[in-house]
C-alpha cells in the first residue's frame, strides 16, 4: 500500500506565533520549526498501516526552507521519502492553492491512501484535506479516531457530536486523523541516521504545472484585509490561597448572585 501523508511543518510550540502587520501573514521566517504534532499523528497512523499491510509512506509538505527540520524528523520516524514544495512564489497561498499544489504533487506517484490531520495546529482551517480529496477525485473520510484497512476496503471510526460513526469506503481515499488517535513515536538514533540518506524531492509551483500568479498571494481567493487585536478583558482580582481560597470563591459567587 502506498501511503501519502500531508503534514505541515510549523513554528515550534514554544514560539508565540505573531502576524506581520505588513504582509498580514504569520511570521514563519527566523523562528524554530517542528513537524506539526497533528501531522506527526497522521504520519504515525500511516507508518502503522504500512507496517501491518506492507508498503511505504511518503511525507508531503509545502513550506519554507526551515521546514527541512520537520521533514527530517518525519523521515527519522520512518517515512521512506519526502516531497517538499518549496518556492517563494507559493508564500501567502490560501487553502485552495495549498490543496491544489499538494494534490498535484501527490498525483506524481501512485497512491492508495492519503492521510492528513483534521487541522493544522497553526492555521486550523480544516478544509485543506477535503479540497485535496476533491482535486484527487477521491472520497474524504474525516475526523478518524481509528482506521482499518482490509484489502481495498477502508473503515474508520469517525468522531461525531454524540459519539462516533463507523464509516467505510473503498481505496483510494483520503482520511483525516483526530488528535489522540495515537501517540506518535519518537525518532530513534537509528532512524535519525537512516533519515540522512533518504530522498527529499523538491518541487516548485512550475514543476507542478502552476504559474506564479495562480498560487501564493496573487492566486489567493481569500485576502486578509486587516489585522487587529481583540479588546483585552478587564483584569480581574487574583488572590493567593492562604487557607480561605474556596471561601473567597463562594463570596465572589454570592457577589455575582450565582449563590
Amino acid at each position: 500500500m502506498n501511503i501519502a501523508v500531508c503534514g505541515k511543518v510549523i513554528p515550534a510550540s514554544t514560539v508565540t506565533i505573531e502576524i506581520d502587520p505588513t504582509t498580514k501573514r504569520m511570521v514563519r521566517k527566523g523562528v524554530a520549526h517542528e513537524l506539526d504534532p497533528a501531522a506527526a499523528s497522521a504520519l504515525e497512523e500511516g507508518l502503522r498501516l504500512a507496517e501491518k499491510h506492507g508498503g511505504a509512506v511518503v511525507l508531503y509538505t509545502m513550506g519554507i526552507q526551515d521546514a527541512t527540520i520537520g521533514i527530517r524528523s518525519a523521515l527519522a520516524m520512518g517515512a521512506a521519502s519526502a516531497v517538499h514544495i518549496l518556492d517563494d512564489a507559493v508564500a501567502g497561498s490560501d487553502t485552495l492553492a495549498t490543496a491544489k499544489l499538494l494534490a498535484a504533487a501527490i498525483k506524481k506517484q501512485p497512491f492508495d491512501l492519503v492521510l492528513c490531520a483534521t487541522e493544522s495546529s497553526d492555521s486550523y482551517s480544516g478544509i485543506v484535506p477535503g479540497q485535496i480529496a476533491y482535486f484527487l477525485g477521491i472520497p474524504a473520510l474525516t475526523f478518524a479516531r481509528e482506521i482499518a484497512v482490509d484489502g481495498s476496503k477502508l473503515v474508520i471510526k469517525r468522531q461525531s457530536e454524540s459519539g462516533y460513526d463507523v464509516v467505510e469506503s473503498t481505496l483510494p481515499a483520503l482520511v483525516t486523523t483526530t488528535s489522540g488517535i495515537n501517540e506518535p513515536r519518537y525518532p530513534q538514533l537509528k532512524g535519525i541516521m537512516a533519515a540522512k540518506k533518504k530522498e527529499i524531492k523538491v518541487y516548485t509551483a512550475a514543476d507542478l504545472g502552476f504559474s506564479a500568479d495562480q498560487v501564493g498571494e496573487k492566486g489567493a481567493r481569500e485576502k486578509v484585509l486587516s489585522i487587529g487585536r481583540p479588546p483585552k478583558r478587564q483584569a480581574g482580582k487574583i488572590v493567593t490561597d492562604e487557607g480561605e481560597g474556596g471561601k473567597q470563591i463562594a463570596d465572589f459567587l454570592a457577589e455575582i448572585k450565582v449563590l
Binding site: 502576524i19 498580514k24 489567493a220 481567493r221 481569500e222 485576502k223 486578509v224 484585509l225 486587516s226 489585522i227 487587529g228 487585536r229 481583540p230
Partner: peptide
C-alpha cells in the same frame, strides 16, 4: 488576533 478577510 481579530482579523478581517474577504473572498475575491
Amino acid at each position: 488576533y481579530l482579523n478581517t478577510a474577504t473572498l475575491v
